[in-house]
Write a protein that binds this DNA or RNA. Structure first.
Lengths: 140, 140
DNA sequence: CTTGACATTCACGTCAACGTCAAGGTTTAT
DNA sequence: ATAAACCTTGACGTTGACGTGAATGTCAAG
């Protein structure tokens, strides 16, 4: 029963496959590791070995980067998502909690700024006179 | 009636004052100009002369940069705020409108990502066991 | 007329988030 | 056993948003 195409189950993956499956380059994956965002194990030959969970992890990281956060703050933020439903509760000391609280504030500020400006652009687009190679359009 | 301290009314300002009033460096203001975000006039001596509106303009730009947008997209976005309440309606051709629509989508995506992750961090903070040098705390 | 606080234009330095080789070891296919 | 397709570690290049001078001009005050 193991000859039916590639099994996509819960097995460790090497850097190439993880790259393909997440859409980032291997360089990026090594960079994320260097920044403490990923912690792959090593096979006997030195090859990196990622757990399946790294796929979603990388997507998380990309999400946060696209949202404008730096790897430094992502490093402190991503552990929050590890055990969503897991049993592991990483030790959270007061300093980490304070840092996270600060980050939440910054994210709020970012969301605010983005929302305000997006709305302004939208209002502008709705209020703007659309092109019209013909200047006769009577609003319908 | 003109001897009562410094008049904060509607007069042109030079780069130093604008920098102080917006909290950015003069270097940053020149950079914004280079990027097409500001268009100060010049006095006879070559000094830049900014209108009062530049204060809010710079704040806008900072807002958008903090939100993660690049000067390139800000350059296309900021004109939307020029005439909020003004009479001038800059010519908006289809291409600009399309660009702006794309930017609005990207901003939506950013807001989405930020909101999701902020909420996750918040959930984590609420669910996390706070510090406790004493390990006896019985959930109350 | 010099000093000091402003302004000007180069122009190189920095930091983050990667891209892009280079020079090799490993595994797989033929 | 040799090529092709992986992987490894350096290490230098790039882009964006500025920082940080250097060398110079301008202007009000003493």
């Amino acid at each position: 029963m193991s000859t039916f195409g590639q099994w996509t189950g819960d097995r460790p993956v090497k850097i190439g496959e993880l790259a393909r499956r997440t859409g980032v380059t291997t360089r990026t994956l090594r960079y994320y590791e260097e920044q403490g965002l990923l912690h792959p194990e090593r096979e006997s030959n030195g090859y990196r070995s990622y757990p399946e969970s790294s796929v979603t992890r990388v997507e998380q990281v990309r999400d946060l980067l696209a949202a404008g956060l730096s790897t430094r703050v992502i490093r402190v933020v991503v552990p929050c998502f590890e055990g969503s439903g897991s049993q592991l509760r990483p030790q959270v000391d007061g300093e980490l909690a304070a840092n996270l609280a600060r980050e939440v504030e910054q994210m709020d500020a970012r969301i605010d700024a983005l929302t305000r400006n997006r709305d302004a652009v939208r209002r502008f687009l709705r209020g703007a006179t659309p092109p019209g190679p013909d200047r006769h359009s009577a609003s319908a």
